[in-house]
Every structure is written in structure tokens, then in C-alpha cells.
Write a protein that binds this DNA or RNA. Structure first.
Lengths: 149, 149
DNA sequence: CAATAAAGGCAATTTAATTTCGTGGGAAGT
DNA sequence: ACTTCCCACGAAATTAAATTGCCTTTATTG
């Protein structure tokens, strides 16, 4: 099955409300509940829908500090990269880790309770990795748009 | 109601699978379905759960190009910032827009079908905004970690 | 220690998800 | 152009889940 108009609409709605009932979804896209459900299940089976996530309010949960952190490595071997990635994988503070082109190798998204907690992360996690050469922090003051939240 | 052990577990599970059935969720956290449901609804009412989203596989949907883009403004007035933010708001290619500290003002996350489409965005959207002074693109080669996807 | 409030569990009810089955419309082949 | 076949549809029945009402338990406080 290819992604036609109906499936596009289904994905669009599920991106907005991943917990919409199948009946309401069917109604919105103009299909019967059974046809709609079959499409959703097929999209899941194909891996086009990878999953569903609840979106939490970090502020209300005590997360008061978010930043992007760029990291440059001193060595660029495969081993060195893997070691870094493994260390990052373990760290709860790091929500995202992207390997990017440009003057530094990695762009991280980090979230902590406050600046003090960030400093700890900065020193104990990043500062402790031998392959890390440069660290630059860009504190998020405001997120004007965040469609993935 | 404060966030006790049960609610923490509920949030944890919903972050992983936002569409888990209430019965399964109740079972996982060790509550009865009714008690569990009341907690979830309370968390939603308090805005701690902001919503639910389906997570899609962009690659399978024809998104082959993702990048972080830093933007510096030539003017730093409130008006200028608002004009920029409004333009960004309208752009489908921009998934995130963060106002950050550092040598540039904004960090964007942009996704397009391919490099050609990105060039169009770069020229027609960013290049067309009078307040934009500097643009720097950091292509994502790989995302080692992305807990928000 | 009793009163009261807050949260829990059970069971009944409402609502939704899922399955089954028959039908129609379009594609492929003759 | 006709026939066959297949795919996806919708309707209805069935199964399962969400939700509600009510009573019980637990925890708090005067």
C-alpha cells in the first residue's frame, strides 16, 4: 500500500494527537473505522509510524535548564567516536546526540534541573571524556517553535 | 496530587509508549485500571502531560535531509525578532526554532526532501528575510541518540 | 483515638477496538 | 471491450477497553 491522500491525513492527525480514538480519526479523514484501523496498523507494520510518545511539560517536572552543546573531538578515529557515543548513550541528561558536518563533530541537546546541575554534567560527564577537545554551550532561552515536543 | 512513585512510573511508561492501554499501564505500575486512569487524567488536566504524538519515520516519508541551522540577526530589536519568528512559524521546513545564547540568536532544525530542496529553503526563505545577517548550516549525518523522535 | 479527606479496588456500564464477511471498483490479462 | 481477480471498502457482530458509581482502605489531623 502506498501513501495516498487518506494515509497522509491519518499521519497528519496522529502527529497532532497520537491518542485520538480510531472512530474520531476515521471520521476526520472520511473513512469507516475498520478501513481506518487497517491503514493505521499497516503504517505501524511498515514502520512508517515508529511509535507513540506522551509529551511532558519539563518545566512542571523540574527541568529548568535546556541547552544545545557542540562538541569537538581531538581524535577522529572510529574508535574514538564510538567511545564518545557510548558515554553519551548512558547519560540521562542528553536527549539528543547528532553527528554533524562543520567545525565540530557533535551537537547535543541537554536538559537538567538547573544551571548547577548542568555544571555538574559539564564537568563530570563531558569533561571526563578524553576524546573531547572543545565544548560550547548554547542555552535555550525560548523555543518559538517545537513541533516535536 | 504530587508526583509520587506511581505517577513517575506512569509518565515513564507513557513516554515510551503513549498508546499503551490503560489496563496494561495499570498492570505495569501496579495499580487498578480505575486508579491508574484517574492519575493519567489528572496528569493531563494539570498539563504535565501536554499531549501525545505519533513518531514517524521521516526517511520512509521522503525526508532525506536534516540540518541544524544557526541564524544571526543584524538588528536585535524586539520588532526584528518578532518578524523573524513569524516568518519561521509559517515555514513547513522548520521543525524547531530556539532562541539561544551565544554568537548567534537562533538555532533551527530544518528538514527537507533533499539537498536541492534545502537550497531552495535557504535562498527563498532565509535569504529573503532582511533581518538575517548570518546563516550557518550543520548537516546531520547521523543521530546517535534521539529520545524525542 | 475519632473524624475526615484522599486515593484505591471492584463491578457495572458505556464506549471503542477488532474481526468477520459480503460487495464494489479498478487493474491485468485475454 | 469483457472477464477475472484482487484489494480495499463498509456494515454488523464480537471482543476488549475505558469510564463511572460506589464502597473500602489508608493516611492525616485535631
Amino acid at each position: 500500500m502506498k501513501i495516498d491522500k487518506f494515509s497522509k491525513e491519518i499521519l497528519q492527525e496522529l502527529k497532532i494527537d497520537g491518542r485520538i480514538s480510531n472512530i474520531d480519526l476515521a471520521d476526520k479523514v472520511g473513512l469507516s473505522p475498520s478501513a481506518c484501523l487497517r491503514r493505521v496498523q499497516e503504517l505501524e507494520r511498515q514502520g512508517i509510524i515508529k511509535g507513540y510518545r506522551a509529551i511532558l511539560d519539563n518545566r512542571k517536572l523540574g527541568i529548568g535548564f535546556s541547552a544545545f552543546v557542540t562538541v569537538g573531538l581531538s581524535v577522529h578515529t572510529k574508535d574514538s567516536q564510538q567511545a564518545f557515543e557510548q558515554a553519551i548513550e548512558k547519560s540521562d541528561e542528553v536527549l539528543e546526540c547528532h553527528n554533524v558536518t562543520g567545525p565540530y563533530e557533535y551537537l547535543l541537546r541537554v536538559e537538567t534541573a538547573d544551571l548547577v546541575a548542568y555544571k555538574t554534567f559539564h564537568t563530570d560527564v563531558l569533561g571526563d571524556l578524553p576524546q573531547v577537545a572543545t565544548i560550547s554551550t548554547h542555552v535555550i532561552m525560548e523555543s518559538t517553535k517545537d513541533e516535536r515536543k
